[in-house]
């Protein structure tokens, strides 16, 4: 993890209809490693992710990615600039096969064989359901596909929104291992996660949100060790999250 910034949000405000969701988000994501974005439900974590991706337009403030201002960019251009996104609902194209989902993400229509082999190492089950309709997969398999789809093309920043939501512990273990593996690559990861155990395992830095603002930033290990801070920021101690 370097000192250089991969992503920098400064005073970002986002309105959804009449609701003022993000109320001046300041967040710095260092290049390399995993930054966890934590917070209570409704704190604005998903809206932050969607604002970075351009799916919601920031009404104020700036989003800078690798030194370029991407605040007003359209989503497809942000994606082409090197940001991949795994949304909370996974966004699987159910009518298409797993292979077709992957080909779509490859964009050129050709998947890099070496990268595909690496994905099969991360998620061996992907090989098994390669030709299945994606709609027939289980929740865990869909999440594996969603992550695989996001990493089939090398990207500078990977946004992952609650990858363990609703998954069985065994699957969460497999995903955690995959993210530990992903950390070894050049890709920076910004992840929203409610599972504190997973956040503690893979997170290098952490931002905690509340009421549409970032209320704490620092090292993940510092937060993991400080139960009082956890209670203050997240409302629960780490023990309860485990």
């Amino acid at each position: 993890m370097s000192d250089q910034l991969c992503l920098n949000l400064q005073g970002v405000h986002t309105h959804i209809g009449q609701y003022h969701i993000l109320q001046g988000v300041d967040m710095k994501v260092p290049r390399g490693g995993v930054t966890m974005l934590l917070g209570r439900n409704g704190a604005g974590k998903t809206t932050t992710m969607r604002t970075i991706m351009g799916l919601w337009q920031a009404s104020q403030g700036s989003v800078t990615f690798n030194g370029s201002d991407i605040t007003k960019m359209e989503t497809h251009d942000i994606s082409k600039n090197g940001i991949s996104y795994v949304p909370e609902d996974m966004g699987i194209f159910s009518a298409l096969s797993v292979k077709e989902n992957m080909i779509l993400a490859a964009r050129t229509g050709e998947m890099d064989e070496a990268r595909l082999d690496w994905i099969f190492q991360l998620f061996p089950a992907m090989k098994k359901f390669w030709n299945w309709p994606a709609g027939n997969l289980s929740g865990g398999q869909k999440q594996m596909l969603a992550i695989s789809r996001a990493v089939i093309e090398p990207s500078s920043l990977l946004l992952v929104d609650e990858p363990t939501k609703g998954l069985a512990p065994a699957i969460i273990g497999a995903l955690t291992e995959a993210f530990v593996e992903l950390k070894q690559t050049d890709t920076t990861i910004l992840m929203v996660e409610q599972n504190f155990q997973m956040a503690k395992t893979i997170g290098d830095t952490v931002c905690v949100m509340d009421d549409g603002r970032v209320v704490h930033s620092g090292k993940m290990s510092d937060l993991a060790e400080n139960e009082q801070l956890q209670e203050q920021l997240l409302g629960l101690s780490m023990g309860a999250h485990q």
Binding site: T75, H76, S84, S94
Partner: peptide, 24 residues
């Protein structure tokens, strides 16, 4: 064709198609 696959992706989840880089 690859074009047809993008169309199906748009039908299923336009935001997602946009987020993987297709100008829908």
């Amino acid at each position: 064709s690859p074009f047809g696959r993008v169309l199906q992706a748009i039908r299923e989840n336009e935001f997602r198609a946009e987020a993987i880089g297709y100008r829908t």
